[in-house]
Amino acid sequence: MTTDFSRESVKRIAELSRLHLSEDEITQYQKELAKIIQAFNALSQVPLPKELLGDARSALGMAKGIGADDSLSRMCSDEAKNSIATHDFLAQSPDREGVFVRVPAILASST
């Protein structure tokens, strides 16, 4: 698994994580992530009981089915209750204008 952690892989994971890394950080995380993933690699070799074989989605489904518990995961009625005033929410935004959250221009300028 260590080989999977090229600088490019770290950059790609950072991109997916919406994180901007400096060159030094890339070097550091490359080493650390490789070491951690290597330590966790045994997981992918664990023999599983038949009913749990298959892809992760079916494993997830099975795990949920087996662990079903009457007292868990009930649904709530979908009612809007505006218990917090708009201005209280807005008070925490980094920038605002009237009842809006103000953001910088989000599209790159066309060239």
Partner: peptide, 27 residues
């Protein structure tokens, strides 16, 4: 940041089954 990247990696295509799916099953 380290944990976010570790999690993003474990959920990414090609690794999801080997790590995340397997972890759920062992759990």
């Amino acid at each position: 940041k380290r944990r976010i990247m570790l999690g993003t990696f474990a959920l990414s295509a090609g690794y999801y089954d080997a790590f995340y799916g397997r972890a759920l099953a062992v759990r």
